[in-house]
Amino acid sequence: MKRQSTLFCCLLAAALLIACAPAVFADVIAIGSKMENFSLPNTSGKVSTLSDLKGKNGAVIVFLSAQCPVVRGYNERISRIAAEYEAKGIRFVGINSNATESLDWAKGNAAENYKFPVLIDKGNLLADKLGASVTPEIFLIDANNVLVYHGAVDNDRSGGNITKPYLRSALDAVIGGKKVEITEINAFGCSIKRVGDK
């Protein structure tokens, strides 16, 4: 009896420890590794896969938010880059992983700002898998689904003084068959609001 109660106490303590542990994000997918195919519904509920959506030269997966002012500041630039590089065989795929944003909200925002599809990452499973933590945050894969760039769009959220166009440089390298010089740079923006965040 005493043994059983001791065991029960240990199990309870372990369970409490797990419950109280801070959320740990999955490791960020490494540069040079292959991004696995994924499938998510778009804002109309139609499920698409990465393979369906990517262009012949690759894809840009961009984590977005309907309410983040940093994303709003980047919307025009992202749309412009998407339009420009779609013609060069790169497709953009938006992902909304924010647990605090309703489908209607995400849908309205997508219709207003983007011509590329925005997928709903309910439960932030894709964000966890890739290690995405902010919006806007970019993952660029080449024609073979290999991650070649991860991070910020550029170095100036205001857009008035861009001296390091990270994403454009990476896209040009991919299209030109060259090595991407800067492969990782922290994206600045709003934290993705994950399920369970208080």
């Binding site: 933590s133 902010v134 945050e137 910020a152 922290n186 994206a187 600045f188 923006g189 709003c190 934290s191 993705i192």
Partner: peptide, 12 residues
């Protein structure tokens, strides 16, 4: 971010 800590992923 680099001045503060490399661990900062850029979110607020």
């Amino acid at each position: 971010i680099a001045i503060v800590t490399r661990e900062w992923k850029g979110g607020l």
